[in-house]
Computed example of a mutant assay.
Amino acid sequence: MQEPDPAVPERQRDVQRTLGRCLQRLQHYEFVIKRLAAHHDIAGPASELQAIHARRVEGFGTKTLGQVVREVSSSYLTSSTADESEDDLESPPGYNPTKIWFRSRCYTSLSREECKQARQDLEELVRLRNELVHHFLERFNVWTIEGCDAADVYLDESYATIDGHYQTLRDWTDGMDAARTSLSQFLLSPEGQRAFLHSLQPQPASIDWAHTKIESLLLAAEETLNEHGWTLLAKAIDAMRRIDPEETPKRYGCSSWRQVIHESRLFEIRKTRTPDREEVQVWYRTIDFDRASWNRKKLANQSAPSRIIT
């Protein structure tokens, strides 16, 4: 029987130290990315924001690294397309237009190629973490000098990869913290308080959105084009332009259809990504079903076509 190499135990301890260094860095990374996920997007009634924030922190604290990475990939990283560069008007869960709502959102806007690479990098880190935690001893025979040497090389490379991801993550969180600090300082300043109080005052030239033609067209499009209760805004816009090309957001002082939907407070918005995750799709649906039915009946009695043909 071959005698074990007396140098193996010491080399095993070297591997253990290097492995521990990698796992410790991964734990640092996981702590920071959970903080980013919990803090970068807070929305809700002003009186409930503190409780909402506490629930987000607790919720992300129990998620796996893979789950948190998927959340950050979809909500924090965005492509710098024209659609995503607009103000985010998506209605958050539980949105109630009768209450004072507040939303603070930070995100990183990248080119499409950069965004795709950043998401791939995040997925790579999750795979590396799983490899180190679950399959390291399957891959390396640390009961031999050769196996320990190979493991050490792999662990040194892994640490460099993890640390690179960690530094990128810290750049993201530093940017988020700087933005939140600037917002806080502005809201506490006399200018910020005046701007906030002004936003609560009724506007003198307010629009009765429920009785506008543009809202009637949106309702007609919703009736015809909705998929499981939600209507793809891009399809609705194409159809409405064929019916009345002059009925545009600019007529109502809005820069986009999304702003029309947001300002009217008659609809809610959500965003999804295409299966290839390259494009964001905007959907809308009516908040008040009874009001929608009433407007559809009103539209049916008008001379303009009430149904939109695709």
Results as ranks from 00 to 15, higher is better:
W172A: 09
W172L: 10
W172V: 05
D174I: 10
D174S: 15
D174A: 15
D174P: 08
G175V: 05
G175F: 07
M176E: 05
D177H: 14
A178Q: 13
T181Y: 14
S182F: 10
S182T: 08
S182C: 11
S182D: 10
L183E: 13
L183P: 05
S184E: 07
S184W: 12
S184Y: 12
Q185H: 12
Q185W: 09
F186M: 09
F186D: 04
L187F: 14
L187M: 14
L187R: 11
L187Q: 09
P190R: 15
P190L: 15
E191Y: 15
G192F: 05
G192H: 06
A195P: 12
F196R: 10
L197K: 06
H198I: 10
S199Y: 06
L200W: 10
L200Q: 09
Q201L: 15
Q201R: 15
P202V: 05
Q203I: 13
Q203R: 14
Q203P: 00
Q203N: 07
P204L: 00
P204R: 00
P204V: 01
P204G: 02
A205C: 11
A205L: 12
A205H: 10
S206Y: 03
S206E: 09
I207Q: 02
I207C: 06
I207F: 06
D208I: 02
D208P: 04
W209N: 02
W209V: 00
W209D: 00
W209R: 04
A210H: 01
A210Q: 02
A210S: 07
H211Q: 05
H211S: 06
H211G: 02
T212H: 01
T212E: 04
T212R: 05
K213S: 07
I214A: 03
I214T: 01
E215N: 08
E215F: 06
L217H: 04
L219Y: 01
L219I: 02
A220S: 13
E222K: 01
E222S: 06
E222W: 03
E223Y: 06
T224A: 11
T224K: 04
L225K: 01
N226C: 11
E227C: 11
E227S: 13
H228N: 11
H228E: 14
